[in-house]
C-alpha cells in the first residue's frame, strides 16, 4: 500500500506502459499465489495427503486377493497381523537392531566429530576414506560387506580360517547376522551424522570457546557444563534421524540375508515388503502399513521439531 503512494514520484521511462508497475505485484498477491502453487499443491495432495488417509482407512477394510476393498473388517487385519509369529519376531528384531544401531552409531559419530574438529584440517585422503560410505548407496555398501564376509573367498573369512575358525559365516547365524547389520549401519551412517554434530560444534560462538580455554584449560568441566548442553538439540536431532533410518532399514536385509537365517534378520520394513509383494497378503499388509506410517511419520516429525529447536537456539 505504501508503495502505491510512492509511485507517482517514480521517474517515467520512455515506452513504459501507462499502468503503474506496483499494480502488478498487488494483483499477483490476490490470485497469483494460488495459481502458481496449484500444481505442486495438487501433486502433494494426490501423492501424500490422500495416500495417508487411504492407508489409515484401508487398514480397517476387508481386502481381496488383488488388494481391492470387499467389505469392512474392523480390527480383523490387525488381529491377523499380530497372530503371525514372524511379525512378532520382526518386531523383536527391529527393536534390538534399532536400539543397538542408534546407540552405537550416535556414540561413534560423536567421537568422530570430536576427532575431526580437533584438527586444523583433515587431509583429503582421510576425508575420502572416512566419508566414502556416506556417498555410496546402501546397496553398494551391503555388497562390499557381503564380499568382505563371504566364507573362504572374503578377507574376513580367510582371517577367521587363519585363526583356526574354519567355515565361520557371520551371516549364517541369526544373532551374528543381526550384529553384522548393526555394524554395517554404524559404518554407513556414523560419518554422516558426525557432519551434523561437527556443524553443532562449530556453531558454538568463538567468544565462548575463548572464554572456556582461559577459564578451564583441561576442558572436561567446560565440555560437560557448556559444550554438551549447547550440543544437546543437535544430538537429539541426530538420534531421532538415526532411529528413523534404522526403522526404515531394508536394503541390506534384501541384499545380504533376505531376512534369514531362520527369520533372524527380518526387520519390519522387510516384513511389509514380503507381506505385500511376495505373499500378496493385503489385509495384514494394510494393518502393518498403517502402523509404520504412524511410527515413521512421528519419528520424522520429531526430528523436524528438533531441528526447529536447534534453529531457535542459534538464530
Amino acid at each position: 500500500m505504501s508503495r502505491t503512494a510512492a509511485a507517482p514520484e517514480r521517474k517515467s521511462l520512455p515506452g513504459e506502459p501507462a499502468v503503474p508497475a506496483p499494480r502488478a505485484p498487488r494483483r499477483l498477491a490476490s490470485v497469483g499465489p494460488y495459481a502458481v502453487m496449484a500444481l505442486p499443491a495438487a501433486l502433494v495432495i494426490a501423492f501424500v495427503a490422500i495416500p495417508i488417509v487411504e492407508t489409515a482407512v484401508k487398514s480397517f477394510d476387508q481386502l481381496g486377493p488383488r488388494g481391492q476393498v470387499t467389505g469392512f473388517a474392523g480390527l480383523l487385519n490387525y488381529r491377523s497381523l499380530f497372530a503371525q509369529p514372524v511379525f512378532i519376531i520382526s518386531l523383536q528384531n527391529t527393536l534390538t537392531y534399532a536400539v543397538a544401531a542408534v546407540v552405537l552409531c550416535v556414540a561413534v559419530a560423536f567421537v568422530l566429530a570430536q576427532l575431526l574438529s580437533s584438527r586444523a584440517g583433515a587431509s583429503r585422503p582421510l576425508l575420502v576414506s572416512i566419508f566414502s560410505p556416506t556417498v555410496m548407496p546402501m546397496i553398494a555398501a551391503a555388497n562390499i560387506w557381503l564380499y568382505f564376509l563371504a566364507p573362504r573367498i572374503g578377507l574376513f573369512g580367510q582371517l577367521l580360517s587363519a585363526l583356526g575358525l574354519h567355515g565361520t559365516n557371520l551371516l549364517g547365524e541369526p544373532g551374528s547376522a543381526l550384529g553384522v547389520l548393526v555394524a554395517l549401519f554404524v559404518w554407513k551412517f556414523a560419518p554422516y551424522f558426525a557432519l551434523f554434530i561437527m556443524a553443532g560444534l562449530q556453531a558454538i560462538p568463538q567468544s565462548v570457546r575463548e572464554a572456556l580455554r582461559t577459564e578451564d584449560p583441561t576442558g572436561w568441566y567446560a565440555f560437560r557444563r557448556v559444550v554438551l548442553p549447547m550440543l544437546a538439540p543437535m544430538m537429539a536431532f541426530v538420534t531421532t534421524m538415526a532411529l528413523l533410518y534404522s526403522v526404515e532399514t531394508i536394503d541390506p536385509v534384501y541384499v545380504m540375508t533376505q531376512g534369514g537365517p531362520n527369520n533372524g534378520t527380518t526387520l519390519v520394513m522387510f516384513y511389509l515388503y514380503q507381506l505385500g509383494f511376495n505373499y500378496f497378503s493385503w489385509g495384514p499388509a494394510a494393518a502393518l502399513s498403517a502402523l509404520l506410517m504412524g511410527s515413521l511419520s512421528t519419528l520424522s516429525g520429531l526430528s523436524l521439531i528438533g531441528l526447529e529447536r536447534r534453529a531457535f537456539h542459534w538464530q
Binding site: 501424500v48 495417508i52 487411504e54 492407508t55 505385500g276 493385503w282 499388509a285 515413521l296 511419520s297 520424522s300
Partner: peptide, 20 residues
C-alpha cells in the same frame, strides 16, 4: 501441506503409492 511431504516418507505410504 509441503511440510507434510517431508514428514511422511514415501516408505510410510508405500502400498498406496504403488496402487496409485
Amino acid at each position: 501441506l509441503f511440510l507434510l511431504q517431508i514428514v511422511v516418507p514415501v516408505y510410510a505410504i508405500l502400498i498406496q503409492e504403488y496402487e496409485i
